[in-house]
């Protein structure tokens, strides 16, 4: 599955346009990481636990995006965008969306 956030793929033409596809996940942070982050909050700096957590979540959103894209018969997703929103205290939603297309 080819993914890009450009609007076209250089050197290849779009044969079919298959509409918007998306993948999302909601993740909560767990207590162990929270305690570490709470300590780190005191002195400032990078919260590695949260960075990893969000990276994992984003990867899952991308995987689901790819899954949905292949389910509609696409071989590429163009113009991929990411958004993050916090839905509840201590939980974040990751959304990845893009346009599924079939390239020659």
């Amino acid at each position: 599955m080819l993914m890009t956030n450009l609007e076209s793929v250089p050197g290849r033409t779009i044969v079919r346009h298959l509409g918007l596809v998306q993948g999302s996940t909601v993740r909560a942070k767990h207590v162990g990481r929270d305690i570490m982050a709470g300590l780190k909050n005191l002195v400032g700096g990078e919260l590695k636990g949260y960075t990893e957590l969000l990276q994992d979540a984003r990867q899952e959103a991308i995987d689901r995006l790819a899954q949905q894209a292949s389910a509609v018969g696409a071989n590429a997703v163009l113009n991929v965008r990411f958004t993050t929103s916090s839905v509840a205290q201590g939980a974040a939603e990751m959304l990845a969306y893009g346009t599924a297309v079939e390239l020659d």
């Binding site: 450009l6 250089p10 050197g11 005191l42 400032g44 960075t51």
Partner: peptide, 25 residues
């Protein structure tokens, strides 16, 4: 958009970088 003269014979891939940083007390 990519510059036109760059286009022949290239591959593209999605890359990302992220970080969470907090402010001190």
């Amino acid at each position: 958009h990519l510059p036109k003269d760059l286009e022949p014979g290239i591959k593209t891939t999605l890359v990302m970088g992220s970080v969470v940083i907090s402010v001190d007390y």
